[in-house]
Design a protein around this nucleic acid. Structure first.
Lengths: 111, 111
DNA sequence: ATTATATGGGCTATTTATAATCCAAATCGG
DNA sequence: CCGATTTGGATTATAAATAGCCCATATAAT
């Protein structure tokens, strides 16, 4: 039985997922890595590599990101120092933001 | 009991995960959305939103990407048409690549 | 063509994530 | 300060992912 769709995904997140999956697969092949070799390096099973390269939404994001990192796919188009910079910058901004949110009035969206 | 570390993650993928988590949390607060409201919109539980904003590697990537999309966090710094373009470009490239990989000789890496 | 092997897919057992609670503490608006 | 509510964290039952097999097919190198 093919599992029939449990959740709904926006086309945006579905495309992002597919794109990441394709980039990983392409990078793996270009680096001449076997699915098994990649699985071993990532510490996961070959079957999971297959699901990752298929863009399965149910895969653990940690496994996907780790796999991407191994084959050299850059998330956020950024290297580590750049990401670290963004992290601390975001931390600073987050510190200034309210710690809990009150939906003022009835409006939930701004546009 | 705090679950003791099962897997190892590279610092790169851990940072990428944290960064995405922070961007989501920041975007949610800036949009004045309650964790419950965001959970409802994403079709997931509030507890999962908390783990997503904590950068938990075990979260399903579909749930994370969907949540990001809802609060307006752009994956790959790209809008939908841009991603679609990358998708088809990648498809074309993949078609030219070998369909299966043979580790030539003993070398697994190229550098 | 032949041979070795990579890939795709299915299957089951086990681990893990997720939902749905509930509670205590923190936070914000009045 | 007070009251309402958001948030964080724990717990438990359920659902789902993952690992580890297996087999058939496709692919690539010789």
């Amino acid at each position: 039985m093919t599992k029939l769709e449990t959740r709904a995904y926006s086309s945006y997140s579905r495309d992002a997922l597919k794109l990441l999956a394709q980039m990983i697969r392409r990078a793996r092949i270009e680096r001449k890595l076997t699915t098994q070799e990649l699985a071993d390096r990532a510490g996961i099973s070959r079957g999971l590599i297959q699901r990752i390269e298929r863009g399965d939404p149910g895969c653990a994001i940690g496994a996907v990101f780790e796999t991407a990192a191994i084959v050299g796919v850059r998330l956020f188009d950024a290297d580590q120092p750049t990401m670290a910079a963004h992290l601390s910058a975001n931390n600073a901004t987050l510190a200034l933001l309210p710690k809990s949110v009150r939906p003022s009035g009835k409006v939930k969206d701004d546009f």
